Amino acid sequence: MTRSEQAAAPYTVPGMHRQDAERVTDILQARLHALNDLALTLKHVHWNVVGPHFIALHEMLDPQVDAVREMTDTTAERIATLGGVPIGTPGAIAAGRSWDDYGVGRADAVAHLGALDLVYSGVIEDHRAAMKATDELDLVTQDMLVGQLARLEQFQWFVRAHLESGGGRLSTEGAHTLAEAAEQAARGAEGRR
């Protein structure tokens, strides 16, 4: 959906040029899609994790889901504050997505953690790019993204703590797809038993 189809407001915040606000809202709309997708993915894992570490992962994910949902709300409200129209419908998320859908179904905790590590890497890398892109456009938006990055990086650290060997090597190292990451993590867990 283009900006004109969204019926964006003809104004933005005082002191910001409308053209800059439009660039920022475009950046934020992509982040909104990613955060909405992440929240749904985390819930999917929450519902589909099995095995001996079920409860640990099940309970670890709820606070992450809540925090990511809060990030989506903050991001959407920033888009609206700048005069844009935040779009959060399922069709818009799927159409705006540049990444593969999460394809791990019912699986043990380690397999899901391996796939989630890759998911978090993608979200964090794109959030960092957005942070850099807003450096000269809007420091308020950049500050919001910096705060979100701190939480996202912490959540990935929680995930990686389950995938890391005593020597600091990640069992998902070199994985390029979610399926590869899940498989490598599961193999790594078998090797540590």
Score class of each variant (00 low, 15 high):
4 S>Q: 15
63 P>G: 06
146 V>C: 00
79 I>E: 08
84 G>C: 10
105 G>K: 09
63 P>I: 05
71 M>K: 00
176 H>M: 10
1 M>H: 14
138 D>G: 10
77 E>W: 05
125 E>K: 09
181 A>P: 03
40 L>P: 00
97 R>C: 07
190 E>D: 15
115 A>F: 02
179 A>L: 06
134 T>K: 01
74 T>L: 13
159 V>Q: 04
138 D>P: 07
152 L>E: 04
11 Y>L: 08
33 H>L: 05
182 A>S: 14
192 R>H: 08
151 R>Q: 13
54 F>S: 11
75 T>C: 11
94 A>I: 15
133 A>K: 05
77 E>I: 03
137 L>W: 09
96 G>D: 06
24 V>A: 13
135 D>L: 15
170 L>P: 07
21 A>S: 14
115 A>K: 02
24 V>S: 04
116 L>A: 07
72 T>P: 02
94 A>H: 08
27 I>M: 14
85 V>R: 13
157 W>T: 09
156 Q>C: 07
61 L>T: 03
4 S>I: 11
1 M>S: 15
12 T>E: 10
20 D>L: 04
152 L>I: 07
190 E>L: 15
168 G>H: 11
6 Q>K: 10
178 L>E: 11
164 E>Q: 15
157 W>A: 05
13 V>K: 09
67 A>K: 08
146 V>M: 08
175 A>D: 07
60 M>Q: 14
91 G>V: 12
4 S>W: 11
28 L>A: 03
14 P>S: 15
192 R>M: 08
64 Q>C: 09
118 L>M: 10
48 N>H: 14
173 E>M: 08
177 T>I: 06
49 V>F: 02
17 H>P: 00
104 V>G: 01
158 F>G: 07
122 G>F: 06
125 E>P: 00
81 T>Y: 05
141 T>W: 01
84 G>Q: 05
83 G>H: 10
111 A>H: 05
133 A>Q: 14
139 L>K: 07
185 A>C: 04
98 S>Q: 13
169 R>I: 13
7 A>L: 14
48 N>Q: 10
69 R>Y: 01
